[in-house]
Design a binder for these strands. Sequence first.
DNA 1: ACTTGTGCATACCAACTAGTATGTATACAT
DNA 2: ATGTATACATACTAGTTGGTATGCACAAGT
Lengths: 196, 196
Amino acid sequence: MNATDTRERILGRMFQDIHKNGFQGLRADRVIADLGITKGALYHYFPSKDAIGLAVIDELIEPSYLQFFRGLEDVDEHPIDLLQKHLQWLANKATPDEIHLGCPLNNLVQEMSPINESFRLRLKVVMDGMINYTTKALERGIRNGQVKADADCAAVAGFMVAGMEGAYGVAKVLMSVVSFHRNIQQLVNYLESFRA
Amino acid sequence: MNATDTRERILGRMFQDIHKNGFQGLRADRVIADLGITKGALYHYFPSKDAIGLAVIDELIEPSYLQFFRGLEDVDEHPIDLLQKHLQWLANKATPDEIHLGCPLNNLVQEMSPINESFRLRLKVVMDGMINYTTKALERGIRNGQVKADADCAAVAGFMVAGMEGAYGVAKVLMSVVSFHRNIQQLVNYLESFRA
DNA sequence: ACTTGTGCATACCAACTAGTATGTATACAT
DNA sequence: ATGTATACATACTAGTTGGTATGCACAAGT
């Protein structure tokens, strides 16, 4: 068991615990007991509970969320196709468990934004990234004649991201994968209306 | 100072504290110190912290959220007009402070749904109410020839609610009233597309 | 006048929780 | 061989937090 393994095992379980209980509901004692390690190991890698939360955002949440959106810059496919495919992919991969626990990004946003500015700023970077990469992709679509010329790309991009988070949130309290699928489909239809 | 006054003063401040810090972040001690009362008063009216949270949902959140949606049954106006007006009203009344703190309903949904079934069920009642009253209003609109006959009313209603919550959530992390206005406007446009 | 219930205040506690201080085994460099 | 940094384990603490036990002033009923 080398060093990075332990650190990543800790981060992974912390992520899971935060995903279910929220950051304020995270109990470091519970996680380390679960991992079969001790406080010595934990505080060897992380100076504080806050540092754990920020590391989870930086090292797990941010990369996984921005991967797709960054990729929008490197392909030439129709941007609306790409976005619709991504939405369908999200809908198809969503298990009941994932739906019940909600979107990790959205969860942290709602919980932490008003009470911890360090958290909010990092979460804002992720959200901004999702919106801005989408905006750029749609603008490229306009230049290529694939997207309606009069589309307000920033507004459409922002609404798509908001719609995604809203879909996760509603499905979470309803505990309904069906509701999630429905709302994602409405978003797909919404995007369709901007096709040139 | 009569009894109901004290109870309502407690509930009001608890709501404020929960609105900012979340239920898990709620500190009863902080609130009672702020109110200038003691634990005796608090536990005279509420048996536990959970009871406080549930009372906040039942007595403050549920009525304020469902008031408009229940009202959809009692009027004959074009349902899409009513919904659009409500959205505009939400957008206009939203202060930066409200946006930064987020939607109280959405906040509790994201935080409490996976960890407390009593909370989730009460929050689900509110969300279901919003969606179902909206669905009925749209169905009435179809019968009256005001809404496109082929509209999937339940899907549209669900998406409107999800869009609202999504708009609140994104605006919260971005700390942007402008983002909120934009997304609400997109929702208004979305509803417009179902006008007969 | 006397009991009873209401509406609190005061003092206290047990459990939890993030964080620390200290020790130590192992690897690795010199 | 020896110093040194790494990677933990153990034991402990200080502060917090929800909750309780008890007492008491006061109003209302009888």
